[in-house]
Each structure stands twice: as structure tokens, then as C-alpha cells.
Design a protein around this nucleic acid. Structure first.
Lengths: 346, 346
DNA sequence: CATTGTAGAGTGAACGTTCACATGGTGTCA
DNA sequence: TGACACCATGTGAACGTTCACTCTACAATG
């Protein structure tokens, strides 16, 4: 009766040991399912655990084992369905392997998200996945170098030392989109980009620009940027369309902005897809309910999430930090009504 | 040089102490911004921290202080935008008060979510918010009793010992919806419920049933249930409408299912709102882009999130467990085209 | 019978931190 | 000059675990 449970209701391994009249270590063995415990003892310990509602303290355990069996997942906007897919995928993969995923939203006001990442590390995670990051390559590289754990960045193609990058092949995606539009008879393609995530946007923009030049000969397509929300997308799209009345197709950074574009078209009396085609990226479920349903670039979020998890796990097992590997995923074009009739594709 | 950093790159308070030639405690004081440190020493320590990229180990700290400054937020579906709002709100509130929010998705296959909650506790969180929970009141009560930390349940009106409940006033919401429909001339109201979250659904259903009876005299309105996804909502809505051809209004459990209902109406050649009105709950942004834009019940997610956070914090400060308090929030009706013209409201 | 092996259980130390207290030095005031 | 206060800093213990040992009892072996 010498112990004083400062936090009532939370019992420790010693409480259980006393209750079952064994040592800490024996309780520890029972919890870990260690074979060298007499069946009768095991039963007594299990009863004590049940009786005291004992839950092992993961922090104390992590302190001595130097492994928390926990990964961190940091995203800029938890409400973005696109990230949600990947997050769910990672969570599933983690669970399957006995890991726990701690999800957090990056506070971009706190040093561009770095503050949140630092806090994530202090939590003792064994690895970190970031999707996407607003930080530039150099900052990320330095973060990874001093983090003391493997780091994976999703959604950005750039090759960064100490980091595994997992991204969609933007060149292939742009090719799919532009080829589809041109085959559908569109000639003057406008681009609606995202004013956030400069690193991600840059890759996507450059890829689109190249594909457009390749397919239509136009060197710098009309472009406008806005916040990745429906209303802001609508506003930006209206500007784009008013500045460039000859546009007959808009490629938007994501489905959200594409839906804003649909509204903007309505505002200006343009009919989709007859007067103008609209394409988005991500393949969020709402795209199917848009008016008209949205043609979009789909990526295998679950596959990418799995790969992200396995990359972290592999680095941990090997004990070697990532070395700037880039895993590229092939996109698919999901053709719906916003770009007219489906065109035959190989 | 006696220390061996088993995890290279992660340095401890002792490394910093040696580097700055002071004791652990002095480093600790600098980190905690304690006033009693000589300016010159403080500087030296800060340099050492910077140089070694030292990050205090939150787990070790929590072990001795018995406070992790961390709350857990558990949700059934992270992709549900409605939960996302609340989650973001809690995260903001947490940050403001120096707390960190660990977000996790409940694995309903693992003992109905209880497994995930247990793991959350082993992480050492100081409090838990659940939104929503699939667990029944009794299980929740027992969980809270043995958790050793305050527990808040969001989105359910039930009064549970040891728990603070934060919920929307379902009776008021149902009244708003039904009154609006009836004022718009609708007479035969169907209900589309969610086959998940039985506890939440029950409250909402009963409230709607009462309001419908009160306003139209119909005792048990036609009802169908489905999964809270667009496609499943569409299917269930179609069944509802085919079984009850005289329905002139559908109240759906949430906006997602309401959007499914819009599609079902399209399938059956019904025009919204002329032939049939549709109402949802939650006020997700996509509702505004639906065709037609969706009338919906809006709740103050941020306010509820703040309240949830403050409830946890207060319990912690007072050291008293929650005692079955229920905080009720007033809903608002956001009238859009899916129910016809806006009717004047007080 | 002495030796060896082994199953079952226990013990001290360590993980990285903070708390409560101790220490030594400097300044102030009677 | 002594008494005291106070400032800057250091030390041992503790938080709840697990690891690497050690210990005891008993069975098997020669």
C-alpha cells in the first residue's frame, strides 16, 4: 500500500504485479505473450489485468525499447478528401503491421508547418509521412536529416536526400488529360492552378504546359491561380475565362477547383461540355455528382499509402535512412460527361 | 563519451548539457523558459540545442509529469467532412492552449472501435473526444470509468455518467426542417436514415418522427436506411421513393445521403424541388454545388469543437470526472433551392 | 550421489525527463 | 562582521517499462 496512484483509475504494471502476487517482469511477460510463464500464473496475472483495467503505458515502453510502434501522418488540410483517402490507406496498412498512425494537421502559421512536424517528433514517432508539404526541398531535407527517423513525402516528385518521395507521374497525367481534350476536338486549353503548395503545383503546371505545347503547339497556355476551395476556384475560373474568351477547355488543379470552374461556366452562360470542357484531378466521390459529372485524373491512393508505409517500415528494419528514392505512380483518366463523350483509349 | 546514441541523430537533454557544460536541470530550465537562468548560460544552452537539433522527448516528460499535454480525437470516418470540421476546430483550440491533438480513425472491426480507443489511451493522452461513436452508452460509460481521463462524446444527446456529451438539439432541428417543408406546402415527408451509428440515428429519427406527426398528423412516416455514401444513399432513396410514390419531400440523414437522393430523383424523373423537396444535415460545402443546391441543417461545428476541448480541459483542471453533462447546440436551417423558395422565418 | 540442464520467476539498471531539494556564491543590512 | 536573503546551478529520486542478468527448484544424466 505504499504506492499512491496520482492519477486515479490508471493502474501500472506494479499494481498488477502486487494484485497477482508476482513480479513486474512476470506481468510484462504475460502482456507480451512470452511462453515461459506457468499457465496457472498466467491466468492469475490476466485476471489481475482485467480487474484493474490495466493498460500498458506505451510511453514508458517506448522509452526503454526506443521504438514507439507509431508513425506520424501530417497533412496540410484534413478536409481535403484526396488526403483523406491516403490517410485511411496508411492507417489500414499500419494496423495490419501492428503500428499505430497518429494523424495531425500541419499548422502553416507555425513556421510553415515545421512547428507541427517538430512536435510530431517529440511525440516519439518512429517515422513520418507528409502529404503534402508546403516546405521547400531544402528545409525538408534538413528536417529529415535531424529527425532521427525515416521521412516520406507524398505528392511531390522531387528527389530529396534523406527522404522517400511518392508521387503520381505528372507527365503521364498531363499527357492523358491533354491528349483526351485534343482528341475531343479542343484546341485552346486554359489552366487553373492552386496558389498553395508551390512545389506540387509547379510540377503539375510544367507537365501540363509541356503536354499542351506538344499537342497544340501553344507555348504558354492561359493560366490563373486561386485557393483550392470551390468559391475561390469559381472566382479564379471566371477571371481565366473572361480574360481568355476563346478557351474551350479548362484543366483545374483538383476536383474542388474544377467544380468551382463548373459554377463559373454557369455564371458566364457557357455550357459544359459543349462550349467548354472541364477536367479535374484526384477523383473525389463528389465529382461523380457534379453537374455535369467531372472527368478527372485518378491515382491509386491506397497503393501509394501502402507504399509510403512500407517505405517507412523498410527503412526502420534496415536501419538505413532513405536516400532520395522517388516512387512514381501511374495515373488514370476517368472520363465523365464534363469533357463530352468518352473517347476510345488504349 | 560514455553515452551511446542507439538512435543516431536523436540527442537527449544530457547531450545538450555536456555540450553546453551545464547540468540536465539547467537545460530543462532553458527549455521551459524558466526565469532563473543567467543570460549568458541561457545563450550557451540555446546554442547547444540548436547545434544538436535537440528536441525534448515528450514521452519521458509525460512519464514524470503525468501529463502529456495531448488529447485524442477519435472518429469513425475521417473522410466525413462533417467530422473534419469539428476535428479542425478542436485542433485549433488545442494549439491555442498548448495542447496537441492526436487524431485517429476508429477501427470498427476491432471490438467496435474499442480496440482503437484502448490504444489511444496507452499513448498517454490526457483526454479523449469521440465523434461519433458506434459504441453503446453502457460500453462508453465503462470505458470512461476505467480510462483515467476525461471523455467527451460529440454528436449524441444521451446522458452518460462519466462523460460530457456535446450534441445538436435534434428536436429543434427536426422542428426547423419539418416546419419549413410544411410551410412550403409539402404534406408527405419521407425519411432516409443512416444504417450506421444507431445511437445517433435513433435520436434524429425520433425527433423527425415527432415533428412530422406534430405538423402533418402522420404517425410513422415512410423510412428507409442506407450506408452514408452517395451511391448507397441513391439506392436507398430510390427504394424509398418507389415504395412510396406519394412522397413530396425527403429528409436525409446527412448531406451525402441527400445528394444521393437528388440522384435518385433524377433516376425516377422527379424534379427537385417542384415534384419533391430534399433536405440534408451538416451543411458540407459540396451541398452548395449540388444540383440543385441543397437545403440543409447547419450546426456550429467550431463552437462545438471549442466546447469539447474546453470540457476536457476543465475536467482536467478541476480533477473531477465529467458527470453526465449534456451540452446542447442549436441548429440553423440553411435554405437553398432543393426545397424551393426560401420561406420567411423568425 | 554429484553434475548439468532447464523452466519459472525475480532484480537492478536504464530509457529521458522533471520535481524537490541541496549547495555555493554574492549582495544587503543591522 | 555576521546573519540572512536570494540567485544560479547541481543532485538524487521517480515516472512505468523492458533488458540482461541472476536465482531457485527440480528433473535428467552419468
Amino acid at each position: 500500500m505504499t504506492r499512491r496512484p496520482k492519477v486515479p483509475g490508471r493502474s501500472t504494471i506494479i499494481d498488477v504485479a502486487e494484485e497477482a502476487d508476482v513480479s513486474r517482469q512476470t506481468v510484462s511477460r504475460v502482456v507480451a505473450n512470452h511462453p515461459r510463464v506457468a499457465p496457472e500464473t498466467r491466468l492469475r496475472v490476466k485476471d489481475a489485468i482485467e480487474k484493474l483495467a490495466y493498460r500498458p503505458n506505451r510511453m514508458a515502453r517506448a522509452l526503454v525499447t526506443r521504438m514507439s510502434l507509431t508513425f506520424g501522418f501530417a497533412t496540410v488540410d484534413m478536409q481535403d478528401l484526396h488526403f483523406g483517402d491516403t490517410c485511411a490507406g496508411m492507417q489500414a496498412a499500419a494496423r495490419e503491421h501492428g503500428y499505430y498512425l497518429v494523424v495531425t494537421e500541419l499548422d502553416t502559421n507555425d513556421n510553415g508547418g515545421m512547428g507541427t512536424l517538430e512536435t510530431l517528433l517529440t511525440l516519439g514517432v518512429d517515422g513520418v509521412a507528409i502529404f503534402p508539404s508546403l516546405l521547400d526541398d531544402k528545409t525538408l531535407e534538413q528536417f529529415a536529416a535531424t529527425s532521427g527517423c525515416p521521412v516520406v513525402v507524398i505528392g511531390r516528385e522531387s528527389k530529396i536526400p534523406n527522404i522517400v518521395s511518392i508521387a503520381m507521374d505528372e507527365t503521364a497525367a498531363a499527357e492523358l488529360v491533354v491528349d483526351h481534350l485534343v482528341e475531343g476536338g479542343k484546341k485552346r486549353i486554359g489552366v487553373l492552378m492552386n496558389e498553395m503548395f508551390p512545389e506540387v503545383v509547379h510540377g503539375r503546371y510544367v507537365a501540363l504546359q509541356r503536354a499542351i505545347e506538344h499537342h497544340t503547339g501553344v507555348e504558354s497556355p492561359p493560366v490563373e491561380a486561386g485557393h483550392p476551395k470551390i468559391d475561390e476556384g469559381r472566382t479564379a475560373a471566371r477571371v481565366l475565362l473572361e480574360k481568355n474568351p476563346d478557351i474551350d477547355a479548362v484543366v483545374a488543379f483538383n476536383d474542388i477547383m474544377a467544380m468551382g470552374t463548373l459554377l463559373a461556366c454557369g455564371d458566364l452562360g457557357l455550357r459544359v461540355p459543349r462550349d467548354i470542357a472541364v477536367v479535374g484531378y484526384d477523383g473525389i466521390p463528389f465529382g461523380a455528382v457534379a453537374n455535369p459529372p467531372l472527368t478527372t485524373i485518378v491515382q491509386d491512393s491506397i497503393g501509394m499509402a501502402d507504399a509510403a508505409f512500407m517505405a517507412l517500415l523498410t527503412c526502420l528494419k534496415d536501419g538505413s535512412p532513405p536516400d532520395g528514392e522517388v516512387l512514381l505512380w501511374q495515373p488514370e483518366l476517368l472520363v465523365r460527361a464534363s469533357t463530352g463523350l468518352a473517347s476510345p483509349r488504349t
